[in-house]
Amino acid sequence: MSLLESLNQDMKQALKSKEKEKLSVIRMVKASLQNEAFKLGKDDLSEEEELSVLSRELKQRKDSLQEFSDAGREDLAEKQVKEIDIIQTYMPAQLSEDELDSIVKETIEEVGATSKKEMGKVMSAVMLKVKGKTDGSLVNQLVQKHLS
């Protein structure tokens, strides 16, 4: 089942069960997907493009969560946490730190990186492999650890 079909099905379920927050988040994600398709001039997005949109939506909410927490707005921070949880249900299974660590080591060997100067090459290669399956900041930390 495609992401859009899954969102439509969950939207109907949220309407029936009167889950306003879930319905709102699903509508926002659906709108983002449709906007991206329009921007690219396509009818349907590829799985990778859908994943990219989901990742962007998730990152926006995580950034907002941080801002609200820093500002002491726990009510808004709580709302962001709920939205993050809903969006994460549509994301692929996340990699464990051990799995990610082995991918980082493997990629460093493939690229032939030996110093932190080559961190950009390693980061871009790793992120292509793990797109949507982990957080970029964790990848950054692991790459730095292995290149130092």
Rank of each mutant, 00 (worst) to 15 (best):
Q66G: 05
G136I: 01
K39F: 12
L138C: 02
S124E: 13
V139W: 05
E118N: 00
R61Q: 14
K20I: 13
K79R: 14
K133Y: 00
V130W: 05
K62N: 11
Y90L: 05
S6R: 15
V111N: 04
D98H: 05
E74G: 04
E57D: 03
S32P: 00
V53P: 02
A113N: 04
V139M: 03
E50K: 11
L4P: 00
L138F: 02
A31L: 10
E57C: 15
V53H: 12
K30C: 04
K121V: 00
E118F: 00
M1T: 12
V29G: 02
S148N: 12
E48H: 13
D75Q: 10
L40N: 09
G112M: 05
K30F: 10
S32Y: 04
Q141H: 12
K16C: 01
N35K: 13
V111Q: 01
K20D: 14
S96G: 10
L51P: 10
V25C: 01
L40A: 07
D44S: 10
K121F: 00
D63N: 15
V25F: 05
F68K: 14
M91S: 09
D70Y: 11
V130G: 10
A71Y: 08
A71N: 14
L33W: 07
A31M: 07
S115I: 01
S102T: 13
K42V: 14
D10R: 15
I108V: 11
I87D: 01
I86P: 06
V29P: 01
S32L: 10
E19G: 00
E118V: 02
L58D: 06
L128T: 06
D75M: 03
L100D: 03
S2L: 08
K105P: 07
G72T: 09
V53G: 08
K16Q: 09
Q9Y: 06
Q94F: 02
D85K: 13
M123F: 08
T114F: 04
S55D: 09
L7F: 12
G72R: 08
E19H: 08
S32V: 00
E78Y: 13
